[in-house]
Simulated assay, not measured.
Amino acid sequence: MSLDNQQLIEAYRRMSRIRQFEETTKELLLKGELYGAFHTSIGQEASIVGSCMALADDDFMVGTHRSHGHPIGKGADIKKLMAELMGKVDGVNHGKGGSMHLSDFSIGSLGETSIVGSGLPVATGAALGTKLQGGNRVTLCFFGDGASNEGTFHESLNIASIWKLPAVYVCENNGYGEYTAWRKVVASESIAARAAGYAMPGEVVDGQDLLAVYEAVKKAVDRARAGDGPSLVETRTYRFENHAIGPYPEPYRDKAEVDDWRANRDPITLLRKKAAEFGLDPAELDQIDDQIADEVVQAVEFGRQSPEPPLEDAYVHLFTEPVAIRH
């Protein structure tokens, strides 16, 4: 159930793309070229890509407010993502979604929102739609440890289990729900342990290990596609940056803890260290990094060249009959 060499290369490409895209957009935000709240998934690339590599191209995926990595992991065009973050008309949502509200139906990304836990019922509804239509798609839902305490988590898993929906729920447990350590607010020994209450499999995996994530999620995807119902996978991962980028205090975790994860548990570094074992040429991975760097430069230029939305488009895509703008 493991990835072959070409799949591993593609997985590395997507992980590098997430990392370089978000490092660049972080710089643009701090320079004032991007706007609004901005949450990165730097450090969580293996959790994202390992999960997405287990999906078919036409499967559905729902992300979180930490939302750039998920569509990139599913194969999104970073030019259109960059334009979206810049609020331009060539963005995936015509510049109206921004950082926390991205969607890209062309790759099966049904969207993300800033409301914690709100993606769970959306994903469950998509899985129900597939079952009612007699389709073969699986819906994968990303959510964080904080969302596991929301009512939507319990309601969604319960109904998905009752109706044996083709859904896979992936909890990216990065240690903190905003500024609170997860162990302070979760009574069970893991998020995955809660699966037992809904008669579905639950598994905890090392979220920094690409193959461990892929194998666990692939097993869950295959089970869902076979009609055996949903599963819950908890990836133990870590976000290297603060909850959000900007002048926010970070008194809730020790600098030594962050430094240790960066130095010893970076998912991209871990994959590179095993390159020879996996049959990957480090020189080829270097070339991929260089290619991604060029892609990101082109994406930034694409976003800058894209026009601003006209005032007349303010209510387009909001109502079936757009409201006229009075000048």
Rank of each mutant, 00 (worst) to 15 (best):
E308Y: 12
G50I: 13
Q44E: 14
G69R: 05
G73N: 05
V49S: 09
E84N: 07
D59V: 02
G32A: 14
A193I: 00
K26G: 05
A199V: 01
Y315T: 09
E295N: 08
L128P: 12
A181G: 09
A244Q: 08
L128E: 14
A126M: 05
P251C: 07
S2A: 14
L3M: 11
V92R: 04
G134L: 12
A167K: 07
G144Y: 06
A220L: 01
G32F: 06
P322E: 08
E257K: 07
G134M: 11
Y238F: 11
F153I: 07
Y252S: 03
L157N: 08
P201I: 04
P201R: 05
Y315L: 06
V323S: 11
S306I: 02
E284F: 13
S118A: 15
L85W: 10
D259R: 02
F278H: 15
D260H: 15
A199Q: 15
K219H: 04
A83W: 04
V213L: 07
N173G: 11
E178G: 06
I115D: 06
G303I: 03
V233L: 03
D294N: 12
V186M: 14
T269N: 02
D209K: 03
Y179C: 10
H101Q: 03
M53S: 14
E150M: 10
Q305P: 06
M61Y: 11
V168C: 06
K274H: 09
Y315D: 04
I48M: 11
